[in-house]
Design a protein around this nucleic acid. Structure first.
Lengths: 151, 151
DNA sequence: TAAGATTGAAGCATCAATCTTG
DNA sequence: CAAGATTGATGCTTCAATCTTA
């Protein structure tokens, strides 16, 4: 049996680390958000993305892209969040095929509450990281994201 | 409405980037593995972890921890992989409560095949990253993982 | 009584098909 | 016919309860 080359193995390990770290953090931080605010991490991400967008709105397709889900997935995600009053669907005046998801006042309030707690948790996660290290991490992640979108 | 502090926002953005990048890469690379080798990324991770372990085995619980799933989740994951012949369940001589998952010869062969292709994909993903940058990324991720396990 | 693993019920995402509008 | 969104069927994971063995 041919062993996997150490070079391949390093690459595979790096990716494995990324998956593992993300999984552990999402489980822990997401669990806390869910337990304390009844807010699944996916909902939190939706609220963050919408709140950062113009008018607090995004088309269903654009939202799907940002949260890395299929459009079918966000249709149902928005259904649930709409039922909870955190988000609302808005029609598009110029193209009746598109539907916008917009954050509601209740959504903004919930986000504000949860964001403070989430940030506190994140400070613990990144404890010991210097400002330079944080900047480096951001840069590396951004390059990975950009590289992925380009293809 | 009180705006989220820019400091909190930076932390939240970093974590959001991590989630997004992982999601995009897993979708793309995992999709390729699945399409070309009928091997979901979760299966690939299981094979990698088992192949790196003593005897190519791990208890169900240890495997669950490594792949960041619940034990219920791995029970079924191993069920499917066992049905596909890539993995086998082995009893423990000293403690009859525990069950080992062990990689089979077919599993090793499949892993070897897929690992080469996966590594090729990863080279494209990390194109432009210097050796120092790869090392830095590994270090930062390891620190995040260590910090998470400690708590 | 606790630990390791499995199981039934339920939730969420995906895929492919469909509906509507451009 | 293409694009945007939704829907039905299906698959995988989680949660809580259960079974077995220590």
């Amino acid at each position: 049996v041919t062993p996997i080359s150490s070079n391949d193995d390093a690459l595979i390990s790096t990716f494995g680390r990324l998956v593992e770290v993300q999984g552990r953090l999402e489980r822990r931080l997401g669990g806390d958000l869910e337990a304390r605010f009844a807010l699944p991490h996916a909902w939190f991400e939706v609220l963050v993305r919408l709140s950062r967008s113009e008018q607090g709105q995004l088309t269903m397709g654009a939202l799907a892209d940002q949260v890395t889900l299929t459009t079918g997935g966000v249709t149902r995600l928005v259904d649930r969040m709409e039922a909870a009053g955190l988000v609302e669907r808005l029609p598009c005046r110029t193209d009746r095929r598109v539907s916008y998801a917009g954050i509601t006042e209740a959504g903004r309030a919930k986000l504000e509450e949860a964001a403070a707690a989430h940030a506190t948790n994140l400070r613990a996660v990144f404890e010991g990281f210097s400002a330079e290290e944080m900047a480096t991490l951001d840069t590396l992640l951004d390059r990975l994201r950009a590289g992925d979108q380009r293809e």
